[in-house]
């Protein structure tokens, strides 16, 4: 799973996701992609599950680009522990995704295979999504 090699601080505030994406809103690598339509935190596990769904459906042909990186640590307290005593320990990594973000791109496969692969990936993610393609390649 994806995670940073090292970080400056171990724990971060929860934060809120405001506004629309301003970066990674267009296809820059592949011919087809999966765009997020709602804001959400996406975990490293979810990204990995989506990646596997794509590569399996593509039967390891073509190419996949992951345009997310989970660099926000999320902490939690152990079960049955009273409140207080400081912030819990970091448990997993997430990526904050704003609407409009291209999360995955694929290329080197036919349009129908790409659509099906990205549909399978979308089922693994906690956001509403849309299949996108380059200008002039809309079906």
């Amino acid at each position: 799973m994806l995670s940073p090699k090292r970080t400056k601080y171990r724990k971060q505030h929860k934060g809120r996701i405001h506004g629309k994406a301003t970066r990674a809103t267009e296809l820059n690598f592949g011919a087809f992609g999966l765009k997020a339509l709602t804001p959400e935190r996406i975990t490293a596990r979810q990204i990995e599950a989506a990646r596997r769904a794509i590569t399996r459906h593509m039967r390891r042909t073509g190419k996949v680009w992951i345009r997310l990186f989970p660099d926000v640590p999320v902490s939690s307290k152990p079960a049955e522990v009273r409140m207080g005593g400081g912030k819990g320990s970091p448990e997993f990594w997430v990526c904050r995704v704003k609407p409009g973000r291209i999360m995955f791109e694929v290329d080197g496969i036919p349009r129908d295979v790409a659509r099906q692969a990205l549909t399978l990936a979308a089922a693994k993610l906690p956001v509403r999504t849309r299949f996108v393609s380059r200008f002039g390649e809309e079906g």
């Binding site: 799973m1 994806l2 995670s3 090699k5 970080t7 171990r10 490293a44 990995e48 596997r52 399996r56 640590p73 902490s75 320990s89 970091p90 448990e91 997993f92 990594w93």
Partner: peptide
């Protein structure tokens, strides 16, 4: 792939 790659770097350093 089936076994997963969860061994390395899955949890932030406690």
């Amino acid at each position: 792939e089936g076994a997963g790659t969860e061994a390395a770097g899955s949890t932030p350093a406690a």
